[in-house]
Design a protein around this nucleic acid. Sequence first.
DNA 1: GTCTATACGAAGATAGAC
DNA 2: GTCTATCTTCGTATAGAC
Lengths: 207, 207
Amino acid sequence: MMVVIEVEDQDGEDARARPREGSDARTRMVQAAATLIGARGVSATSFADVLEASGAPRGSIYHYFAGGKRQLVAEAIEWTSDQVQAHQRGCDATTPAGVVEHFVDLWRQIVTSSGAHAGCPLAALASDPYADEPQLAAAVERGFEAWTALLADQLASAGMSGSDALAIATTTVAAMEGALILCRAHGNVAPLDAIATQLNQLVTARH
Amino acid sequence: MMVVIEVEDQDGEDARARPREGSDARTRMVQAAATLIGARGVSATSFADVLEASGAPRGSIYHYFAGGKRQLVAEAIEWTSDQVQAHQRGCDATTPAGVVEHFVDLWRQIVTSSGAHAGCPLAALASDPYADEPQLAAAVERGFEAWTALLADQLASAGMSGSDALAIATTTVAAMEGALILCRAHGNVAPLDAIATQLNQLVTARH
DNA sequence: GTCTATACGAAGATAGAC
DNA sequence: GTCTATCTTCGTATAGAC
C-alpha cells in the first residue's frame, strides 16, 4: 500500500506548507494522535480514539488523511519531531549542562502534566509492527537523528569537543527515552529527575 | 476478567514450582511471547504469532493458559524479569564499572543476535493499554524495581556509596531501555555501545 | 491434549447519501 | 465536509468433538 505523506487538498496546495490554526480539526487530530500513540502505542490507537480525543467529526478521517492510518501516524511523528526541535532551538544555555537540562525539561513537563502517563510517539512507533512500513521507520530514524544532531551541535557550541558532544547527545536521548518508560511504570517523575542529575554530573565532569 | 497467574494443572501442582524442559510447549510459548512482546508490543502480538513462533499446537492456548492472553503476558514478563536477574546475579565483577558492563552485555547480546530488532517486554507492556490491568502493571513495576535494586546492591558491594548506587542503577536501566529503542530505530548496536561508554565514564568518575 | 467450529467484538477502509 | 452503512479482516474467547 502506498503511504501518502504529501497531501494535496482540493485547493491543490501542500497541506503542510500552509499554516493552520491550532484549533482546526485536522491539526487537533494530528496532535491527539501523537499523544495517544505516545501513551498507548500505534497499533493500540484507533481512529475512534483519535476522534474522541480531538473532538473531530467522523467524516474528517479520510477527508484529511486519504492515506489512512499510516498517513496520520506519519504526520504525528513528523509533528512531534518538529515540536521537540522547536523547543530545543529555543535553548539559550551557554553551558553543556544547560543544554541537556533544557532538553530534559521539556519531557519533565510532558510527564508531569500527563500524570506520568505520557510517552514518546517516536519510541512507540519504533516498537510497533507499523515500523515495518519503510517510510514510517525512516520518519522515526530521521526524528531521532535530528534530535541527536541538534543536541550535539548545541553541546559543541557550549564548548564541548565534537566527539564527546555526539556521544553525550546520544546518551541524553537514550536516557530520556528510558526514563519515560520508567516514569510510566512507577507512576511518577522520579526516574527522569534521577537521569537528569546523572547527565548533569556526566556533562560537568567533561567540561 | 480474572487474571490467573497461579496455574493448577490436572495434577494439582503449581506449574511454576515444577521444573520443566525448555523444549515443552508451555515454556516455548512463554519464551516466544516474551520475544514477540518485546519486539512488537503486547497488543500487536496475537496468539497466532505465539503459536507460529513456538511451534506449539493450537489447542495448547487455553489448556496451559486458562487466564487467556493476560496470563500469557504476565508469565512472559515474569520470565523475562527472572532471566535478567539470573544473568546479573552471575556477575563476578569487583568494580562498579564491571557491574554495569555485565548488565549492558546481556542486552548487547540480545540486540546483536536479533539483528537489532529485539526489545524489552517490560518496556513494551509499560507502553501498552494492557498495562491498564493493575496486575500486569504491578508485574512490570516489580521487574524494574528488582533490576534496579539488584544493580544498586552490586554497585554498593563494589565500593560505591548507597545513594550514588541507587541513582546510577536507575540511570543504567533507563539508558539501556532507551538505547534498545534507538538500536531498533537505527538498525544497529551503536547506541548501546555509546551509552555503555558514557555509563563507564560516569561510574568511574564516582569510584 | 489437541483439534475444529464458532461466537463476538473491534478495527481499517470504502461507498454513497446529504 | 460530514454522516451512515457496510465490507472485510483479525483477535480473543468458548464449546464441544476426538
